[in-house]
């Protein structure tokens, strides 16, 4: 799997994503500059976490206009795999590649902590290796991760099975206590209708080594590897 990791000014999870893919999974990666206009030869594009453009104006609102985003949109429309993590999720929404919005956390505070995610479906390219109902332990680190969508959109993404992850208790129950940021219906990650674009607030790249507390994030990256083999891209 050839992975491109997009670097905007202010991105900081780029190196962590490269570490997870290259050092842990031995998958080749290259950094993609925000000014690049071609993503030729890539199988997977990651929009990593960070504070692109300092979160000025609104998280992801400026990054969405970076030259690379046109290429990312083309890539996604052609069926390429795109994963937006944290700020990358916010950018994908700003770019209209994913529905909804991410508001300020209900606590009005930044939150960095371990959460449990219930996998809602194994159809997306990033949950292919998981089974529905499986619980993944992965950390969050954000101030604006409160998922919001209007009722029609919300119903539509539920109906289409686009909800990929929900915040849950360790035993998989979706409870108000397990919701770290006020997200509607505890939504932590969603896919587009086709399932090739996924955005998630938690950081799977921080959960790829037992030394750091969990290896559950590997399922996200391995799913992408296997999804590619499956369709023979």
């Amino acid at each position: 799997m050839r992975t491109g990791i997009v670097v905007f000014p202010g991105t900081w999870s780029d190196r962590d994503c490269a570490h997870a893919l290259l050092d842990v999974l031995q998958e080749p990666v290259r950094y993609v500059d925000h000014r690049e206009q071609h993503l030729d030869g890539l199988d997977l594009v990651i929009l990593p976490g960070g504070f692109s453009y300092g979160d000025h104006l609104r998280c992801g609102a400026i990054a969405r206009f970076a030259p690379v985003m046109e290429a990312v949109t083309d890539f996604a429309n052609r069926g390429g795999l795109v994963l937006g993590i944290c700020n990358g999720f916010q950018i994908l929404q700003e770019a209209r590649l994913l529905p909804g919005a991410l508001l300020r956390n209900a606590s009005c505070e930044f939150r960095c902590e371990w959460v449990n995610l219930r996998v809602e479906q194994s159809e997306s390219a990033f949950t292919h290796d998981c089974r529905p109902g499986q619980v993944l332990r992965i950390p969050i680190s954000h101030g604006e991760g409160n998922f919001f969508a209007d009722p029609d959109t919300l119903d539509a993404i539920e109906r289409n099975g686009q909800v990929v992850f929900r915040y849950c208790a360790p035993d998989g129950r979706v409870t108000a206590d397990a919701n770290p940021n006020g997200s509607l219906r505890n939504i932590a990650g969603i896919a587009n209708a086709r399932g090739n674009v996924v955005g998630m607030m938690p950081h799977p790249e921080r959960a790829c080594e037992a030394l750091l507390g969990s290896v559950d994030g590997l399922a996200v990256f391995r799913s992408a590897i296997h999804a590619l083999t499956r369709v023979g891209v």
Binding site: D16, E109, R111, C112, P139, E205, L212
Partner: peptide, 14 residues
Amino acid sequence: IYRTYDHQVQDNTV
């Protein structure tokens, strides 16, 4: 307090 600080970025926090 510390949960309002990112204490994990860079993937080195054991």
